[in-house]
Write a protein that binds this DNA or RNA. Sequence first.
DNA 1: TGATCCCTGCGT
DNA 2: ACGCAGGGATCA
Length: 314
Amino acid sequence: MPELPEVETVRRGLEPAMVGARFSRVTLRRPDLRFPFPPRFAARLEGRAVTALARRAKYLTAALDSGETLIMHLGMSGRFDVALPDGRNLSPGDFYLEGSQGVPKHDHVVMAMSTGATITYNDTRRFGFMDLVPSETLAESRHFARMGVEPLDGLTGAVIADLFRGKITPLKAALLDQRLIAGLGNIYVCEALHRARLHPEAPAGSLARPDGRPTAAANALAKAVVAVLNEAVRAGGSTLRDYAHTDGSTGAFQNAFRVYDRVGLACTRAGCGGQIARVVQAGRSTFFCASCQPESRQAASAGAAGRQFRHKSG
DNA sequence: TGATCCCTGCGT
DNA sequence: ACGCAGGGATCA
């Protein structure tokens, strides 16, 4: 479910309930999510205060006053629900709520905070996970050691050209590769490629000139990635299959999709008239407009880049 | 670099 | 019954 904008939305919802508060009681309803919880997980949290709640790519990190950091990843279906002591609910994006009647299924972790707030982690598919590592070694932890650049931290065409240079892999796959740029997922990659008018199957290396400088397409892509992420964060992320509530707290960016999940529909670009197509790349759906995002343009430059690359290396 | 798998639920 | 789903680790 969550890509960078959704995780950032969750972070903003959790922040007021977590930062400055202590875990008074942590209950695990099962021994594992995607991975087993770390040893003595609940005991290492209980009594500790959260000093800061940050986001790195699609990960949330809660720094504790014990010197450890709680790492949380939502996988595909992870959600947090914040219940305030007065009965109000403070999650922006209440789409993580299953409903008000009865105990929701898949509530795997319940964190009672010293403020009286209760934070519940719910994850249907259990692709999410939590970990606890020493704060000093957070950057070297197995989750972060090989993580790519943060796209909202100054992504430019030059950075993209540097990362993609010499790569034959399709643009779609390169943008999904968290070791290069971290935080994009299927939705925002499709949306960014459409905005930049780039074909998803064009070779990633075609965005770098032979001397390594960015092409115009690389600059356009960087701009599109940053724009689509910022707009999605502003909209509170995208709500897809989750139940929509009426309190105005669901994500709204799904209404701004130009290609994602719009196969067969007309391209919304003014004067385009194309139809959104769906192809499968690396086992995942790619949505694009063949009219807006022609292969030919990229094929030409990719061929030039490929010849140059082979020439240089051979 | 691509399949395969992890897991559950939903729509066709 | 089958395909598909916002992620990603782990193999050939």
